[in-house]
């Protein structure tokens, strides 16, 4: 199968929070008592540059935000990396306050206090969280190390990513659409997904944040007439499975009518080691993804 080496996959769930990497400096935060001066307006962050408020905000972030955005705000299962200098939905502190308060319609970003995880923050705590995010974010966009133009050539050419992945409406259908991924995932998470695609499949985290259950597990079935079909799951329940195969055929199957049904968390995407895609070429692909995601 000529496509075999070219199937490429990027999990939308990039990283389980790496708690071990948390700085021990937060030990001192145990002493921190919420700093909560009375606020008179919703449009001004009263804690700009306040290190104590940032520490209090980090704990609030852990409880309310980290499930999706990851410990350290580097992005997690569903939420983007917030340490990036450029944010898609909010730039100023006041805009961030609005996003945290009201959520982002059409996404899984909930309004404050409406999701199952976290229990609602006071205005002061939201400002503390914003102060925390400001304290950990990159100070400037920074030019990606790679060459985006060359990355695009690779994506649609020799690296064969586009046989399975779409960007801005162009490309394959078997893997996830990668249009937004460069704007939401860290460079490290994207590289990890290319080098070790099976390490983490996409998943829904918890039901309250489960936007769509697709996890891109590899499905292998044998139908009643003996035909083997291999592909990725589009959806599944106890009694049926909806899958797409490498030739982009969709199969709608009832499990009790199959001769066999196997589900694997070994990704359908081949592992891209440095023999297949050099470190430099991978940086170029990452740069391309970042350039699209920044739009």
């Amino acid at each position: 199968m000529s496509k075999k080496k070219t199937e490429c996959f990027l999990p939308s769930r990039s990283a389980i929070p790496n708690v071990i990497s948390i700085s021990l400096s937060i030990l001192c935060m145990m002493m921190v008592v919420a700093i909560a001066p009375k606020l008179t307006a919703d449009d001004r962050n009263p804690y700009v540059g306040d290190a104590k408020a940032a520490r209090a905000g980090e704990y609030e972030f852990r409880i309310n935000c980290a499930l999706c955005h990851g410990l350290g705000a580097h992005g997690g299962g569903r939420g983007p990396d917030l340490t990036r200098a450029q944010k898609k939905h909010a730039h100023s502190d006041a805009e961030m306050f609005q996003v945290i308060s009201n959520g982002i319609p059409g996404t899984v970003m909930p309004a404050n206090g409406t999701n199952g995880q976290g229990v609602g923050m006071t205005d002061a705590e939201i400002w503390q969280i914003i102060t925390y995010i400001r304290s950990v974010e990159a100070k400037a966009s920074g030019n990606p190390a790679g060459n985006a133009a060359h990355g695009k050539e690779l994506f649609y050419g020799d690296a064969n990513c586009s046989l399975c992945h779409m960007i801005e409406g162009k490309g394959g259908r078997v893997g996830p659409d990668l249009t937004a991924v460069g704007g939401s995932r860290t460079r490290a998470a994207i590289i990890d997904s290319v080098r070790n695609p099976s390490r983490r499949l996409a998943w829904g985290l918890t039901e309250s944040t489960k936007e769509f259950p697709q996890e891109y597990e590899t499905i292998t079935v044998v139908t009643a007439d003996g035909k083997q079909i291999k592909g990725v799951a589009l959806n599944e329940d106890n009694f049926s499975v909806q899958m797409i195969d490498a030739s982009e055929q969709i199969h709608l199957l009832e499990k009790d009518k199959l001769r066999s049904f196997q589900k694997s968390r070994e990704s359908f995407m081949p592992q891209y080691n440095s023999d297949i895609l050099s470190d430099k070429d991978l940086e170029d692909v990452v740069a391309y993804l970042a350039s699209v995601g920044a739009k």
Binding site: I16, V19, I63, E125
Partner: peptide, 10 residues
């Protein structure tokens, strides 16, 4: 106010 004292992750 929410009173967890810790956070949990998958």
């Amino acid at each position: 106010h929410a009173y967890y004292g810790s956070a949990y992750f998958p």
